[in-house]
Design a protein around this nucleic acid. Structure first.
Ligand SMILES: [Zn+2]
Ligand SMILES: [Zn+2]
Ligand SMILES: [Zn+2]
Ligand SMILES: [Zn+2]
Lengths: 169, 169
DNA sequence: GGGGCCGATGAGAGTCATTCTCAACGCATT
DNA sequence: AATGCGTTGAGAATGACTCTCATCGGCCCC
């Protein structure tokens, strides 16, 4: 995959949602007044290309360097933070406090492997509305609940087939 | 509150659950072969005395020092980790990756204040079994789900009455 | 009632992810 | 060419947490 500067403004305006492409995110970036530098394109491509498995900032930086060798870890953090503010990526914290990044625009959950710490996307079921109903009842005079977050844990394919069932928690 | 060395072995054996006291935890500690040193008693008292609001290791250390001035931050971490292994405290990670400790033995949820980061205990509703049913359906060939964690977020009393509604996330 | 044993401790150094600082750079505008 | 400004790389700084190691304090045995 190569990162080019082509394509500005000649794509349909599918900025958000499941069908959004790399170019759409570049457009979104520029529409908000940010420059789509080679570094930012590379970070964007790296995090979008990670697929179902979520990636740490360091991994994103490594993948981005394959597309633009000058990408620096500080720039990676800066860009990921920018993308987070624009709603393009999510930052997920798992059990031991490390952060990973997810560019999946569809509503979904996250599952953390108890053995190796890998964080994968899981399809969304029908929990959300139950949780939303519940969270209204949780509000009392000491705390007003406005949202929630669910995290599942278990074992990834690699760890399961290797018979590893330890726990990092 | 003072931390004494008295009471070993002359309390009823209510080691776990809602009615457990400081002394019960001391017993549990010694029954497993660990010494109930003044430092450990102080850390235990500090984390038990925190109430509904969960506390960071540094806060625990500060509170513990009021009971035993020699308590060190390293000892606080060591003791909290020991208490976690014994099931006496829980470590909760909130949105920005910081850890807080909770000694509430009853099943309950945690709510994080989006403004100040305070983590409070919230009563458990009837979500748990819905989630457990759901998590079975989430298991596929790429990930085996074995558990889950829910975290609510909102605004604590202090921030609400001060009209602060920012977000640390 | 002194000596060894061993778990526990304090102080400080080390680690690791993340953030900050600052001089240099790219690129557009004059 | 000179100016301006958003962006960048390198490295220092931060902050939560962990590790190392010399020392401490009971405890058992003689
Ligand atoms: Zn995701
Ligand atoms: Zn795994
Ligand atoms: Zn709690
Ligand atoms: Zn608050």
């Amino acid at each position: 995959m190569a990162v080019t500067t082509a394509g500005r403004g000649r794509r349909r305006a599918a900025a958000q949602g499941a069908g959004a492409t790399l170019g759409d995110r570049v457009d979104a970036l520029e529409r908000q007044g940010y420059r789509a530098t080679p570094q930012r394109r590379a970070v964007l491509a790296a995090v979008l290309g990670a697929g179902r498995v979520n990636v740490s900032a360091e991994e994103v930086c490594g993948r981005a360097r394959a597309l633009c060798p000058t990408v620096n870890l500080a720039t990676t953090y800066r860009t990921l933070d920018l993308l987070k503010r624009l709603g393009i990526v999510r930052r997920v914290i798992y059990g031991d406090g490390r952060g990973v990044f997810c560019a999946n625009p569809d509503p979904h959950y996250h599952g953390t492997c108890l053995q190796c710490g890998t964080v994968v996307d899981l399809p969304r079921g029908r929990i959300a509305d139950v949780l939303e109903r519940e969270q209204r009842g949780l509000t009392d005079q000491a705390f007003a609940v406005v949202g929630h977050r669910v995290e599942f844990y278990g074992y990834c394919d690699a760890c399961r087939s290797a018979g590893r069932t330890g726990s990092i928690l």
